[in-house]
Design a binder for these strands. Structure first.
Lengths: 159, 159
DNA sequence: AGCGATAATCTCGCCGAGCGAGATGTTACG
DNA sequence: CGTAACATCTCGCTCGGCGAGATTATCGCT
């Protein structure tokens, strides 16, 4: 799971960084799946919850349609996701008073606690680790992650 | 509703790093799903292909059972994954001559090309970006990713 | 205001990924 | 040899997600 320079021409040692990043995403996915099944949910439900928590933090009003777009799930599937989360008491449907076609999704405290139980240790661990980094190192990490994000988002429509 | 420092002791600005990392994993997952559907596959199939490519690079003999373990899918589901990949011509079943119960999975060139088409731009872009990092910055990134990996892997069995 | 066009969400019927249980073929050990 | 352990595959099923269309609410136009 590390190593591996026999195939890719000469990418230099930086390729190791990429594999490391990939390993992180894989591990993250596994934790997420594990968390989902521990709480009687599916991967999509967890992703939905995260989207909703992010939206709340960003002050964005989350509607059913918006959520479906974020998840890449069609309207029927989105209704099902919301049904499941509502049944578990993690979210509530609230009709928008201004545009009564819309259904706003309110995240219940229970879901926030769950989210914290899930991410808390990871955030805390990451935070603690970064305590051992000096400013320029933290900046390097931030620059790296931002860059990767840009590369991935950019490769969306370029081929 | 921006800040939720209410629960987690005081997370410094490093929390931004964590959210950035999470955004990367989300984006990565979306690219993977997109790639999967573009090639008539599902997320699990792509993950399986990646596992098999990793195994080949590491010189590990991949069997059906091993793959199922990697994917967290049971034997019936694993058979289905292999069937789909075989039907698409990405892998081939090869009976192990030494233990004829085992089915070795050989990755076909076609799948390797596909993998390269998928990861190539991302690896290349990451590589190019890292050209702008000096040694200590690259080391910081590596240390960060290794650390996160350790934290995530460690939170697995702390039941 | 009245009315069709448009938008947001939900219902229905179906497909197929993944699971549990058990069948089948293979090897190891007495 | 016979029997236990093993690796993989087959069968039947559940349920997440999709396409199509119904339902309810808003908007633009005259």
């Amino acid at each position: 799971m590390s190593e591996g320079r026999e195939r890719g021409s000469e990418e230099g040692p930086e390729r190791e960084i990429f594999h490391l990043l990939r390993a992180v995403t894989v591990e993250y996915g596994l934790r997420q799946a594990e968390f989902a099944s521990d709480n009687g949910m599916h991967a999509t439900d967890v992703r939905a919850l995260i989207c909703l928590l992010d939206a709340e933090r960003a002050g964005v009003e989350a509607t059913a349609g918006w959520l479906g777009g974020q998840l890449g799930v069609n309207s029927a599937g989105t209704t099902a996701v919301i049904d499941r989360l509502e049944r578990l008491g993690h979210i509530a449907r609230v009709r928008d008073g201004r545009d009564r076609r819309r259904v706003l999704l309110r995240v219940e405290d229970r879901a926030k606690e769950l989210g914290w139980a899930y991410f808390g240790p990871l955030i805390g661990g990451t935070d603690a680790m970064l305590k051992g980094f000096d400013d320029s190192e933290v900046a390097a990490v931030r620059r790296f992650l931002s860059g990767v994000l840009g590369i991935m988002a950019g490769s969306k429509d370029n081929t």
